[in-house]
């Protein structure tokens, strides 16, 4: 019985990391503000997934607690940004 095979969880976390990098590209490219918010929302969900994976790998429950709080806080952030951009018309396309 050995518990060293747990590296496969790290592989999953690494794949999520690649997903975050790909989404970051969309965050920089835009072109409109809602596009950037979509990318941010995707990154937030992937970060929560990463936290769950890391919590299992290091056997630390604190990581998963951070994941829960991060999920709820990022939800509030998304709602707030959506509220903010819906109160003004999109004037120009671009950064």
């Amino acid at each position: 019985m050995s518990f060293e095979h747990l590296d496969i969880i790290l592989i999953g976390v690494a794949i999520l990391g690649v997903g975050i990098l790909v989404s970051l590209l969309r965050l920089f490219l835009g072109p409109t503000s809602p596009d950037r918010v979509v990318a941010l929302d995707t990154i937030n969900t992937l970060v929560v997934g990463m936290m769950i994976g890391l919590g299992a790998y290091y056997e630390e429950v604190v990581f998963i607690d951070i994941g829960i709080v991060y999920a709820i806080l990022s939800f509030v952030t998304t709602l707030f940004i959506a509220r903010f951009i819906s109160t003004r018309k999109e004037k120009e396309v671009g950064p």
């Binding site: 409109t32 503000s33 809602p34 918010v37 979509v38 929302d41 969900t45 929560v48 936290m51 769950i52 998963i64 994941g67 829960i68 999920a71 709820i72 990022s74 939800f75 998304t78 709602l79 940004i81 959506a82 509220r83 951009i85 819906s86 003004r88 018309k89 999109e90």
Partner: peptide, 25 residues
């Protein structure tokens, strides 16, 4: 954490879609 994701994700998506439609995209 799974429950939090399941509840917050679709709600956040509505908020973004609604904001995008209201800005006239």
């Amino acid at each position: 954490a799974l429950l939090a994701i399941l509840i917050t994700n679709p709600t956040g998506a509505h908020a973004i879609a609604r904001a995008a439609r209201k800005t006239g995209i």
